[in-house]
Design a protein around this nucleic acid. Structure first.
Length: 877
RNA sequence: GCGAGGGUAGCCAAGCGGCCAACGGCGGCGGACUCAAGAUCCGCUCGUGUAGACGUUCGUGGGUUCGAUUCCCUCCCCUCGCACCA
């Protein structure tokens, strides 16, 4: 490396201080409906990683872009500050989660400032503060008021050695050992608090259709997660055990039900186990719900088919899951793959009752026929199509009714941990669980106690309290909330982060919400994004929020990889943002990432790429420096007009791309313009206004991504005020014109190259570029507009075309041949001007004079190759 | 198995009815600059071709169209999500 590059550290420090002094990124409360740009807030681990940098560079660049186009922008940041890692770290370091968390927050905030992210830090929130989590508790009470909270038994992972509940990720390996003491983990039933998200299942599902600003993948994942299925619930009678409810989506196959199956933990299975050794043995030892092979045991009982009255054998089978449907099913081996496999194994009948068509009964002995079709062997229902049969049977069977099943379960929010929001409940022996009254909120966390179990359980003094209802002795709930509760409404808190009497200012939220652009990782496709939608809907129904969806546009950003692999500590392939910022500066890191790929795609980190990005910024800085030190004095000539047009083109394209968040394309155009400007300054004395307009445009087009250097150069170019507040550059031409002009110039240059190459011209002496005669443009226009069958005839109707004689006939035939594909080119004058202004590029390349001439200045023989959009080219060697 | 997104020149990757042998980048080749290297800049990079042409290409096989990389169908392959889901 010969040249060191610009002094990024000084530039970045200077502007970060200047922004800070001016409060450049504050969004006052009185602005009207700002553009709300939000990145998913991070867990304060203490270190910014490349994924964060990419995430927040995207939101920052977009926020800055929208701001420069004149929008008010809301771009806040905060901390998902509760969570288990803080507890673990506190134990390891013999401190407490709170101090550790705030240390991490301070470090990460500094790192974010070093990256130049333009946040309104006055709106910063941290979910672990009582000012924030008070409102988690308050919202919990409101959910309770609306009967959306339930307390019931649920299974949890339990380590008997540590006497604590473990999260799934703390259970290690196939053997399911505790991560701390390697004791085998047990399942335990504990009373848990649930939020009844299933009450909103239908709306959550149906509204996905309207989330047009979301990626399809995320929408589909949410649909799958909710997993709604319409079907029929009906009863089969089992002798001695009464009626058993079964759910099926294929009641049309009921005549083919040849056995009935119960989940191993179905109540009837458990009853049977008590009296039947074989069933007991199966449930305790053989059942393997995880295995691929369906296993089962015959009970000796029969179930009565409610339609046919037939008695079919009842099995207890491990492929039947108690949490799917009703945990009991009518099995139709002829038309269900899994039932088929089981029937084959156990030797149960397999009967076809659905056929592809009436006279084509399928052979189901080898394989089930699972499509809808026409009913056969189905008594009075034979001949009906599946759909109609389902409706009729559901109507006709006494015990049957339409039913909808969901895969979505209620949301268990109880966590037996310290570092979370205390669930605001008091347990009283007389009154049961009682909500803490609103005026007593927040229930604050007590001091952290380093213990093996739940520290809240050990905080005796905190735990002992009195019942709000009866005043008797009572104890506090010691569970805390899942941290996904915190993140389900944080985007509302930014609207009025200091509100003391309400979680958020309703009027302000109605004006400012929803979030216009949300950006984050795909790992939150279901949980966080679904819970946030749920909270938003509940708050809309009961707290007056006028929005039912929180995020209008969602971008799931791709991963930053190294050699095709995800960066991870365990692989040791982590590139540290700190090191990059120190070596090359934040602007380089940001620019490299944004130009490397579209935001939603994965891309490889490349040190080479970073270096060349840094070199680009250094060169640009040098260009501006040279310009201001020594202002050029060239003419406003043809070359200047070419450069001017290219500036317009770049602005037009880059602006479109910024709108789409395809920064990579916008930046490619911008870098191209820098190249054009360098060619300009290399080949002639530039026209000062034109050159400066170009530099100024480049600086502003880069400003959203490389804000520090942009400020520096904006300042160097003699502007007052921040580039942050500068106006987005505007183009004076439309996109269509730009595209045509560029294509014309590019095609012409290519043609010249090709001729020189093919004809083997070593040293061209002069190059003439000849615009087609006006009549050809007229003819083209007529050809495009005409729908006459005989185009030549129509053209010859025009006297000024007819008098061209053979040339007209010949061109007319060309037009006729390509008639369907014709499109308008630039006007002759526009074409002339475009080529004239681009002639220098050809001169520069071939070192020969180029003249762009009009048709009337040359001999007819030259003109035969000239067409609108494609000039004739004559090269003298 | 179901669902979503993909398969484009040596590699990565745009295009998504005619302007397409197909943007851009990487790699490779040649040239300018340099004492040299690096950086930078300019070309070339499917085949043939002594004036801008022609031929064969965009997973496979069909189809629609005057015309398909672009639209429809079949099949094959990849990635992601869900799944003994009744």
């Amino acid at each position: 490396m010969s040249d060191a590059g610009y002094d990024h550290a000084a530039v970045e420090r200077r502007w970060q201080e200047a922004w800070d002094d001016e409060g450049a990124y504050r969004t006052p409360d009185d602005v009207d409906d700002p553009t709300y740009v939000l990145g998913m807030y991070p867990y304060p681990s203490g270190k910014l990683h490349m994924g964060h940098v990419r995430n927040y560079t995207i939101t920052d660049a977009y926020a800055r872009y929208r701001r420069m186009t004149g929008d008010e922008v809301l771009h806040p940041m905060g901390w998902d500050a509760f969570g288990l890692p803080a507890e673990n770290a506190a134990k390891e370091r013999d401190t407490n989660p709170r101090d550790w968390t705030f240390d991490c927050i301070d470090t990460m905030r500094d790192q974010m400032e070093a990256m130049g992210f333009g946040y309104d830090w006055d709106r910063e929130i941290a979910t672990c503060t009582p000012e924030y989590y008070k409102w988690n508790q308050w919202l919990f009470s409101r959910f309770h008021d609306e009967d959306l909270v339930e307390r019931r038994d649920a299974e949890v992972n339990w380590c008997p050695e540590c006497e604590t509940v473990l999260a799934d990720e703390q259970v290690e390996g196939e053997a399911e050992l505790c991560w701390r003491c390697d004791t085998p983990v047990e399942q335990r039933e504990l009373e848990q608090w649930f939020l009844q998200i299933t009450e909103y299942a239908d709306e959550l599902l149906e509204d996905i259709d309207d989330l047009e600003g979301w990626p399809n993948s995320v929408r589909q994942m949410q649909r799958n997660w909710i997993g709604r299925q319409h079907g029929t619930e009906l009863e089969f009678a089992i002798e001695g055990h009464g009626s058993v409810e079964a759910f099926t989506t294929r009641v049309d196959t009921i005549y083919g039900a040849t056995f009935f199956a119960l989940a191993p933990d179905h109540p009837i299975s458990e009853e049977l186990a008590a009296e039947d050794d074989a069933v007991h043995e199966f449930i305790e030892h053989e059942a393997d719900p995880e295995g691929d092979e369906p296993n089962g045991v015959e009970t000796g009982l029969t179930a009565t088919n409610p339609v046919t009255g037939e008695e079919i054998p009842v099995y207890v089978a491990d492929f039947v899951l108690s949490d799917v449907g009703t945990g009991a099913l009518m099995a139709v081996p002829g038309h269900d793959d899994r039932d088929h496999a089981f029937a084959e194994k156990m030797g149960v009948d397999i009967d076809p009752v659905i056929a592809p068509s009436e006279d084509e009964v399928p052979d189901v002995s080898e394989e089930a026929f699972t499509d809808d079709g026409v009913l056969v062997n189905s008594g009075e229902y034979s001949g009906l199509d599946s759909e109609t049969a389902r409706e009729r049977l559901t109507e006709d069977i006494d015990s049957a009714e339409e039913a909808t099943q969901y895969q979505l379960r209620d949301w268990g929010i109880s966590r037996q941990r310290y570092w979370g929001t205390p669930i605001p409940v008091i347990h009283c022996d007389n009154c049961g669980p009682v909500m803490v009254p609103d005026e007593d909120l927040p229930v604050e966390l007590p001091e952290f106690i380093n213990t093996t179990g739940n520290p809240l359980d050990a905080a005796e003094e905190w735990k002992q309290t009195t019942c709000p209802d009866c005043g008797g002795e009572a104890t506090r709930e010691t569970d805390t909330m899942d941290t996904f509760v915190d993140s389900s409404w944080y985007f509302l808190r930014y609207v009025s982060p200091d509100s003391e009497d309400v979680p958020f200012d309703l009027e302000q939220a109605n004006d400012w919400m929803p979030v216009d652009q949300y950006v984050g990782g795909i790992e939150h496709a279901v949980m966080h994004l679904l819970y946030s939608r749920f909270f938003t809907k509940v708050i809309a129904d009961h707290e007056g929020l006028e929005h039912r969806e929180p995020f209008t546009n969602l971008l799931a950003q791709g991963m930053v990889q190294l050699e095709g692999e995800k960066m991870s500590k365990s692989k040791g392939n982590v590139v540290s943002p700190q090191r990059i910022v120190e070596e090359y500066g934040a602007d380089t890191a940001r620019l490299f990432m944004m130009q490397a790929a579209q935001p939603e795609r994965d891309f490889d980190w490349s040190e080479e790429g970073v270096r060349s990005t840094y070199a680009f910024l250094t060169r640009l800085q040098g260009m501006v420096e040279d310009y201001t030190a020594n202002e050029p004095d060239g003419d406003d000539d043809a070359i200047a007009s070419y450069v001017d047009a290219e500036i317009d083109a770049t602005i037009a394209i880059a602006t479109d791309e910024y709108d789409d968040l395809t920064f990579n394309k916008a930046l490619r155009e911008t870098q191209d313009l820098v190249r054009t400007l360098r060619q300009y300054v290399d080949s002639t004395e530039p026209h000062a206004d034109t050159y400066e307009r170009g530099l100024s445009a480049v600086v502003r087009l880069l400003a959203p991504v490389a804000p520090h250097l942009a400020e520096e150069l904006h300042d160097a170019l003699g502007n007052d005020g921040f580039v942050v507040d500068a106006e987005w550059p505007t183009a004076n031409v439309d996109y269509d014109y730009v595209a045509k002009r560029r294509r014309l110039v590019e095609n012409t240059r290519e043609d010249v190259r090709q001729i020189i190459d093919i004809a083997g011209i070593d040293d061209p002496q002069a190059i003439d570029v000849v615009i087609a005669p006006d009549w050809k443009y007229d003819a083209l226009e007529i050809a495009i507009e005409s729908d006459a069958p005989n185009l030549i005839g129509e053209l010859m109707g025009e006297s000024h075309i007819r008098e061209q004689g053979d040339a007209a006939a010949s061109y007319g035939q060309d037009l006729q041949a390509e008639r369907e594909a014709l499109s308008m080119t630039l006007e002759p004058d526009e074409e002339h001007a475009a080529l004239e202004s681009a002639a220098w590029l050809i001169e520069r390349e071939f070192d020969a004079p180029v003249s762009v001439v009009r048709a009337d200045a040359v001999d007819d023989s030259v003109l035969k190759n000239a067409e609108p959009g494609r000039p004739a080219i004559e090269i003298a060697d």
